[in-house]
């Protein structure tokens, strides 16, 4: 198709991409390309259907009974924790104003804190709507949407419409305590559709926020930029 002259040259990239064999920067670049090229997107979908059968080809083993017991116990415990969780008063957001953020990186005004309670049976785990940098900061037409689901002392960051990190960079997750961002060593890339679900490692008790920045491939020891995503936790 003349509108997408690159597509004829990128079928091999699509194969490596669906197998997870591109490195971070290449995957980010190709992921961004796929979002704007319907032909490569179709190629990715087509080859993905072959990759989807690969898990089924391995020798089938019995999952240990003890594992089943553990998983179900943990899930039930989540539900019970959730019932005890109450909507928390969340802190205000002057930190970014203090950091002098402006222009493209100015964070969307106001904290959209939704302490949404999940549907009744699931138990009211706390869902915190994170602030995100404005669309221009992401070089995107639409702002990503980020939520932190918190279950007791643990959490998972769920992001949609997240553009691929800039070339040579990956997204890095931080936990802020006492105003200092601590590395979690969690680096991530969104899927080709811009989705990411990232478990926050460790204990969130005493933490003030979960943050995301874009850092060089391999990650950084300290953030090198203002957070692109900021999920504030209870004070």
């Amino acid at each position: 198709m003349s509108g997408h002259p690159e597509h004829t040259a990128r079928s091999d990239d699509a194969a490596a991409y669906v197998l997870g064999a591109l490195d971070g920067a290449e995957a980010a670049e190709f992921g961004a390309h796929v979002r704007s090229c319907p032909i490569c997107a179709a190629e990715v979908a087509r080859l993905s259907s072959a990759v989807a059968v690969l898990p089924l080809a391995v020798t089938q083993l019995s999952a240990p009974t003890s594992l089943r017991r553990r998983v179900l116990k943990e899930a039930a415990s989540d539900a019970r924790d959730g019932q005890r969780t109450r909507m928390r008063a969340l802190r205000s957001w002057p930190r970014f104003a203090q950091a002098g953020l402006s222009g493209a990186f100015a964070l969307a005004a106001g904290i959209l804190i939704g302490a949404l309670l999940l549907a009744a049976g699931r138990g009211p785990s706390t869902v915190i709507r994170a602030t995100v940098a404005s669309a221009a900061a992401w070089h995107a037409t639409a702002e990503p949407v980020a939520e932190l689901e918190r279950y007791g002392n643990r959490g998972q960051l769920i992001v949609t419409r997240l553009p691929a990190a800039p070339a040579g960079k990956v997204y890095e997750l931080w936990i802020e305590r006492d105003g200092v961002a601590h590395a979690t060593n969690v680096l991530f890339e969104p899927t080709s559709s811009g989705a990411a679900a990232v478990d926050v490692p460790g204990d969130l008790n005493g933490a003030s926020a979960v943050l995301v920045t874009a850092e060089r491939v391999g990650g950084a020891k300290v953030p090198t930029m203002a957070p692109l995503i900021d999920a504030p936790l209870a004070a």
Binding site: L56, V58, Q60, L61, A63, R68
Partner: peptide, 8 residues
Amino acid sequence: HSRVAFSL
């Protein structure tokens, strides 16, 4: 799905 998940 745990069986195939564990196997993978």
